[in-house]
């Protein structure tokens, strides 16, 4: 198995992403109307929500890949799981940064221990722990297996975390899409942001996945060279 540094799909994704990002910015800052009570501040919401959903998607990918690794023991799945965990943490950190930026002017506090916030933080910590384990196991086969086990645990834990802290009083604006609270004129911007962030997540995941594949290849080349000697 050889890994090409990049494929046509990567180029295609880049071609989508560059104007896509521009479009997302344009939609969020120009096209979407000014929110009545919060003003321009609300515009951060488009990125905040899009990043959160992209992060969750990445964690779901990590779960699926971890499960597949435990079943198949194929390194391919381990690389996918690692790439997904890293991408997920990046997006979750984005959520945790944009959140307080918005909360300070809106609620006059940086941080509140509301369920959504707390859950996001815990979720982020879980996957940081996932990445941490990987650092401290030498044998790659064991590293893959043990981190896959933890990946499964983390994802199973996520809904329990969420339900457990749910009855705490919540400041967080409810999910506006479900309740129809989001003005229809704002929706295109949100949808485009969400779509672009998903593509971005997928692109980062792919690149990271490739990198890990190449690392593996380097190792096996070393082994072959050693075998030949």
């Amino acid at each position: 198995m050889t890994h090409k540094y990049r494929s046509r799909l990567d180029t295609a994704l880049e071609i989508i992403l560059v104007p896509g990002m521009g479009l997302a910015l344009y939609m969020a800052f120009i096209v979407a109307p000014r929110e009545a009570s919060m003003g321009d501040l609300q515009r951060i919401f488009y990125f905040h929500v899009a990043a959160a959903i992209a992060g969750m998607t990445a964690f779901a990918v990590n779960f699926a890949a971890s499960l597949m690794y435990v079943i198949r023991k194929n390194r391919w799945w381990d690389h996918a799981a690692l790439a997904a965990a890293e991408a997920g943490v990046v997006f979750m950190v984005m959520v945790l940064i944009t959140g307080p930026i918005w909360a300070k002017p809106a609620w006059f506090i940086w941080w509140t221990w509301s369920p959504r916030l707390t859950s996001s933080l815990v979720l982020c910590l879980l996957y940081v722990a996932y990445l941490l384990i990987r650092n401290y196991i030498g044998d790659p086969d064991r590293k893959a297996l043990v981190s896959a086990v933890f990946g499964i645990i983390a994802f199973v834990d996520a809904p329990l975390v969420w339900f457990s802290i749910r009855w705490w009083r919540d400041h967080h604006p409810g999910p506006m899409l479900e309740t129809g609270g989001l003005d229809p004129s704002m929706r295109p911007a949100l949808y485009i942001c969400m779509a672009v962030f998903q593509v971005l997540m997928f692109y980062l995941l792919r690149r990271r996945f490739r990198l890990e594949g190449m690392r593996d290849q380097v190792e096996s080349l070393y082994r072959q060279a050693d075998l030949a000697s």
Partner: peptide, 12 residues
């Protein structure tokens, strides 16, 4: 490593 792994998971 144990507390680092355990506490986030055990939160619920």
């Amino acid at each position: 490593l144990l507390p680092l792994l355990l506490f986030p998971v055990i939160l619920p």
